[in-house]
Amino acid sequence: MEVNWLIIWDFIPQLLKGAQVTVHITVVGLLGGVILGAIAGLMRAYGNSVINAIAFVYIEVIRGTPIVVQVMFLYFALPVLASIRIDPMTTAVLAIVINAGAYIAEIVRGAVLSISKGLSEAGLAIGLPRWKVIRYIVGPLAFRRLIPPLGNQFIVSLKDTSLFIVIGVGELTRTGQEIMAANFRAVEIWTAVAVMYLIMTGVLSLMLRMIEKRMRIL
């Protein structure tokens, strides 16, 4: 079969729909992941030994297992264990939340701990409650150091959504696979899929670079 690039046009709408699902899972998943990660990271940085240990176990379990196994666990093992049945889409979002959350927790913890202890003490010493020290002093400083590694994690998570092919979520990779199965246009389709991922990660990088620039001026 000869390579015919023009054929891609016929499948653009279908691929775009897949990309839309990818974006949806990524955005919602990362939103949850950032919240979960911030909580777990702050638990690690400020919690007493019990709170710290809870966050530590969560982070280590997630970082120590492949994301595919986590997805399988959520989708196939959870119904058996707890009779909770969740649909593929929810499973996908949840997997990103839980997986990205663990990595983001370590990023948050690292950024917080990189801010000198003396600054927190100076805040406490003028009578600020701990939460205000975090909110107004450590937080803004840590946030600047957070952006680059956070951006990295966003890109990783976006690409991780391609794994949801295993539970049949119609995201971009799965869509490509389905088209391929029908017409065997491997070169054209996988090139198109790759370019679409590149565009998405490229936009993400660009956005982060812009935020970074804004932060430096602040």
């Binding site: 000198s116 003396g118 600054l119 003490e121 100076a122 805040g123 010493a125 803004p140 400083l141 602040l218």
Partner: peptide, 10 residues
């Protein structure tokens, strides 16, 4: 007042 000043840099 601390040895290292500890002013809020931002």
């Amino acid at each position: 007042v601390f040895q290292q000043f500890n002013l809020f840099p931002q």
